[in-house]
Nucleic acid binder design. Structure first.
Lengths: 227, 227
DNA sequence: ATCCAACCATAACGATGTTATGCCTAAGAA
DNA sequence: TTCTTAGGCATAACATCGTTATGGTTGGAT
């Protein structure tokens, strides 16, 4: 049937961005299984061919979703305010990391390659070794953590290499977030019971004074408040 | 066509176990995308109907794979020898955890719900909150960690709750293992550079003496040797 | 006015999980 | 031994998925 309004800019965004936005929205709402070409085409009012003209296929579309996810993630990490106390900054960064991941659980899982629609690896061309090799967007986010860790190490007697220490801290929070997203912690307040104690131990492990780190954790924990 | 040998026990296992074994083998060899009903049927020399007769569908089959994975995982953790030094035991347990996960990366990822064929959640009926709620097989494996952590805490001045401390340590090693499986650490020796330092920090965080924990890590790291 | 190249709607193809149908074998009862 | 019965599986079809082939439409350049 002929369209009634041939020139109808539903949004001012170009079709490619509209597809990407709709894909991220579908992923967040229905999980990876909702990322289907036909459903996506219906969402933006076009046909499945648009996916192939603008992305080349579902695989490359998922790659672009991952890239956009890392960009948003990096921006969120940048927005965390930095103060005079490196230990407090480290804990605050960890909390923001967890908040962002739990606000976008499906996107977070897709970013780290732990899930992908259709079982096929989403971003084969940008590889999963994001920090080590490709994907500059991932490196930018990781660099923020390295910077904060460097300040903690320089303020104390520890001599560990900052990048190595940052990788350890990243491992810990990554595992914590995935377990919380998967529901392994049930109804417990994971931040109070697990994340802040874990962050405190790691901060002390890279040279922070134990009583100082504990005080920072208490302050940050209290600052969260109850909704 | 009529079968030449109607009574041909290819293996002495019943069809259900043969399907489960073949499924785990397919998963390990080809990843989640290789877990297909037709391929599985061809592997055991039957038709896709066998999957529905014995499991009810691919979803329940994946659930059984997860259960079998947790059983094997728990057995592996049990086999780690325990000595007089709780800190050494904790680090050894962490190393065995990592070894087993890296020997069965696809199974490990499926167990923790971080991947699933066809994008649909594999084990909806046994839920992912394995430790908190269902799946006794997962609880058994987690209990091993709690036991070792309890010994470390009781030997030192720390008063943290063992289950909470164990969850933190589990988070850390889980995140480390997933990042290593995904290739984020490149060609580095992750055990030396990340896992042992991480384990040392956490052991100290739950009350181990810093120099003692460092010595245990050096001994265990040296004991790995080069192949 | 004409042409062209990009874009996309339609329809078909291969492959997937699933289901309907019926045969066929093995075990138990007469 | 023969008949009955119930479970197990082979076959084939169906719905849905990603993908591709084809051709029409549209907006701008010449």
């Amino acid at each position: 049937m002929a369209r009634v309004t041939p020139r109808k800019p539903v949004t001012d965004a170009n079709p490619r961005d509209r597809l990407l936005e709709a894909a991220i929205r579908l992923l967040a709402a229905g999980g990876p299984e909702a990322l289907q070409a036909r459903r996506l085409a219906a969402e933006v009012g076009t046909s499945t061919m648009a996916v192939y003209t603008h992305f080349g296929g579902m695989g490359q579309l998922i790659t672009e979703i991952m890239r956009e996810g890392f960009i948003r993630f990096g921006r969120r990490m940048e927005k965390v305010p930095r103060g005079d106390d490196p230990v407090a900054d480290l804990l605050a960064l960890g909390l923001a990391y967890r908040d962002h991941a739990l606000e976008n659980p499906q996107l977070y899982r897709l970013m780290f390659g732990v899930t992908s629609p259709g079982g096929r690896q989403g971003g084969k061309d940008l590889a999963l070794s994001a920090v080590a090799n490709a994907l500059p967007e991932g490196q930018a986010a990781f660099a923020q953590l390295v910077a904060v860790v460097t300040r903690v190490i320089e303020a104390g007697p520890c001599e560990e290499e900052p990048a190595s220490a940052a990788a350890q801290i990243w491992s810990a929070i990554h595992g914590y977030v995935l377990l919380e997203i998967a529901g392994f912690f049930g109804d417990d307040d994971g931040v109070e019971r697990f994340l802040l104690p874990l962050g405190t131990k790691l901060a002390v492990g890279i040279g922070a004074a134990p009583e100082h780190a504990a005080r920072c954790a208490r302050l940050i924990g209290a600052g969260r408040g109850v909704p």
